[in-house]
């Protein structure tokens, strides 16, 4: 799979940009949380694309955001 960069991303329509990012984030998130990967990816895709690109390059920041997303998701489901 080709690496994704900001230039390539910017040339795609907005929803396609999210799709491209989602396709790359999903397998990484699935490694941490197989059961919640779809929901977590959906949550992270609400963030700015520049942040999402950074997360693809930095496992630490991805992991931190995934943990954050899970906390938010659990709080939401507890309502």
């Amino acid at each position: 799979q080709e690496p994704l960069d900001a230039t390539m991303l910017a040339s795609a329509p907005l929803m396609d940009q999210k799709q491209l990012l989602g396709e790359r984030l999903y397998p990484l998130i699935q490694a941490y949380h197989p059961n919640l990967a779809g929901k977590i990816t959906g949550m992270l895709l609400e963030m700015d694309n520049t942040e999402l690109l950074h997360m693809l390059e930095s496992p630490e920041s991805l992991h931190a955001k995934v943990d954050e997303a899970i906390a938010v998701l659990k709080a939401h489901q507890a309502k």
Binding site: G38, K39, T41, G42, M43, L45, H76
Partner: peptide, 26 residues
């Protein structure tokens, strides 16, 4: 839509075109 929606967050499925928050019924 808002964060109180029971169906939030929208679920990403690989290979399925992403529609973001439009996936959620109002």
């Amino acid at each position: 839509s808002n964060g109180n929606n029971i169906n939030w967050p929208p679920e990403f499925c690989p290979g399925v075109p992403w529609k973001g928050l439009q996936n959620i019924d109002p």
